[in-house]
Amino acid sequence: MSEKEKLALLEETFDVDEGALNPEMLLNDIDEYDSMTKLSLIVMVEEEFGKKLTGAEIKGFKTVQDILNVMV
């Protein structure tokens, strides 16, 4: 999956407009990155990449790139 496709998936998960996310963005600066988004992220990563994210992993995410890195 290309980075563009992964970003599109993330934008769907975050429920933000197409093109609203880029890898350098800090998650803390994104209003939509709340507890429901984190849960949606767990569901998406499990469904698309077959991995179960742990609470510790999610706490460790600082940028959009950090999330892209586990989407493999």
């Binding site: 429901m36 849960l39 949606s40 998406m44």
Partner: peptide, 8 residues
């Protein structure tokens, strides 16, 4: 049981 926000 699967915890799942409405959007998912």
């Amino acid at each position: 049981m699967k915890m799942m926000p409405l959007r998912s």
